[in-house]
Amino acid sequence: MKLAARTALAMLLAFAPASSAGAQTPGQGDDKVVSVAGDDPEMAAAIEQARAGLDDFLALADAPPSGTADFQLKVMVRDGDATEHFWVIPFHRTAAGFAGTLDNEPQTVHNVVAGQEIEFSRDDISDWGYMKNGRRVGSFTVCVLFKKMSKDDADYYRQNYGFGC
């Protein structure tokens, strides 16, 4: 299942900034779109928190400890004035930055498609996450999105996808 964020520019639980935003949670199945203001202070803080821990996350992803799996990045994609954030699973480092497979269906941008291999830089990364002993670690933007969706939907994602927030 996925959680996407969208903006007037857009955010998918995948996620996008600007006047409004939506979001998608990582996983398989149907996508859930949630609206979030592009200038939302909680979303901005979540992105900063993710970026502050990015080096530690990348070190873990390079040498995953026992009990960890499903390492993924959330990446910003721009198309003209539109912006959307997507989960990229799997991802790998390249000489110029990173590359990986877009895991979400675009809602706002039209220059990428789900399943496409994309290249991106560190500056495009807005979140990260992985599973550790059955619980999701990271996914800071998703935790903000839970506050914007119905309690039933948020509880469903928590119960079925290991989110602790």
Rank of each mutant, 00 (worst) to 15 (best):
M1K: 14
A4F: 10
A5Q: 05
T7N: 00
A8T: 10
A10M: 05
A10E: 03
A14S: 12
F15V: 03
A18Y: 05
A18I: 03
S19R: 14
A23W: 02
Q24F: 12
Q24R: 12
Q24M: 12
Q28W: 09
Q28L: 10
D31P: 06
S35W: 08
V36R: 02
P41Y: 11
E42Y: 13
E42S: 14
A46M: 04
A46Y: 02
R51Q: 15
L54I: 07
D56Y: 11
F57P: 00
F57W: 07
L58D: 00
A59P: 04
A63I: 09
S66G: 07
T68Q: 04
T68N: 03
D70W: 00
D70T: 03
F71P: 00
K74S: 03
K74R: 14
V75R: 06
M76E: 01
D79R: 11
D79Y: 11
E84I: 02
F86H: 15
I89A: 13
P90L: 06
F91P: 03
T94S: 09
T101H: 03
D103P: 02
D103I: 01
N104I: 00
P106Y: 08
H110T: 11
A114I: 13
A114R: 15
A114P: 04
I118V: 11
I125H: 01
S126V: 11
S126G: 08
M131Q: 14
K132C: 04
K132D: 07
F140W: 06
T141F: 05
F146V: 03
M149G: 05
M149N: 01
K151A: 13
D155H: 10
D155F: 08
Q159R: 15
Y161V: 00
G162P: 06
F163N: 01
G164K: 12
